[in-house]
Design a protein around this nucleic acid. Structure first.
Lengths: 147, 147
DNA sequence: CCCATAAACTTGAGCACTCAAGGAGATGGC
DNA sequence: GCCATCTCCTTGAGTGCTCAAGTTTATGGG
């Protein structure tokens, strides 16, 4: 098998393993999936903890449809609310509630803890994870334009 | 954000992008998904092109259920057949048909081509992809035991 | 030989995403 | 000011996986 195909398939496998570990920890402690967490995390980085659904989709590499469906349960459990735009009646903002902001902080702690365990010494040095990160960045994955 | 969490999230993003590119090429040219292809590829590596479903699941990092569901359409289109074991009536082998073997060869060519494009120079040197591969291997992803 | 336990597989329900279609509102050319 | 076109978002249908439960067959201890 070509080395590049091998690398690609390894990447797929590694991700599946990684997602399972995060999902297990996050859902056990906070009742959310990794996908939920990344959504909340992105929202947390936005000014005012608030974004248009379209921009959220773009930022997460999802379709608008995926965002609508992902947001629904988070609204239901009160971590996010829907807000209207005064100027444009088409847009529906997703906005972190104060509960959401608090819970996100806790989730973030367990996510960082999990990541630290996964990339634990002695197998992983700081340089290694930095290198991996840099290589992965080169692989893109910003936007949906990879089809 | 911690560097390790950052690396983990980048990995997830990179994989999503990668899967989309493979899916698009493979389904366009051969009517199969990347998941279908990896299943067939694994089967192709087995002696006789034939494996027990349980072992296939283990090798792919899926549940037995996932394998059952993944094989169904491949049997339907004649790439794989179901074979019984003479000794143990519980087991149902999945076996590549000769059509399957032929088609797999073609799929493999386009998969390698796609991988080559993704890891194309000048951004990617041979050392880079080897390094990435090595780092990903360290991340495991063999088996389902990561939960 | 019989039964308890275990292994291989399938199936129903659920989840998280996709695409395609559609509704509602904004915008620009005329 | 109107209408074609575009944007934002939601919804129905479909896909590909999961877990939990169930069926069938094998195995080993008494």
């Amino acid at each position: 098998m070509s080395d590049t195909l091998d690398a690609a398939l390894r990447l797929v496998r590694a991700q599946a393993s990684l997602v399972r570990r995060f999902d297990s920890r996050l859902s056990g402690l906070h009742g959310v999936s990794l996908a939920d967490f990344t959504l909340l995390l992105r929202l947390g980085e936005a000014p005012g903890g608030r974004m248009r659904r379209v921009d959220l989709a773009e930022a997460l590499g999802l379709t608008a449809s995926g965002v609508t469906r992902g947001l629904a349960p988070l609204e239901r459990i009160g971590l996010v609310t829907r807000e209207a735009d005064a100027r444009d009646a088409r847009v529906a903002y997703a906005s972190l509630t104060s509960t959401g902001r608090q819970r996100l902080k806790e989730m973030r702690a367990t996510a960082e803890e999990t990541a630290t365990e996964i990339f634990a010494a002695p197998a992983w040095s700081t340089e290694d994870t930095g290198l991996l990160s840099a290589l992965l960045t080169r692989l893109g994955g910003t936007g949906l334009a990879d089809r």
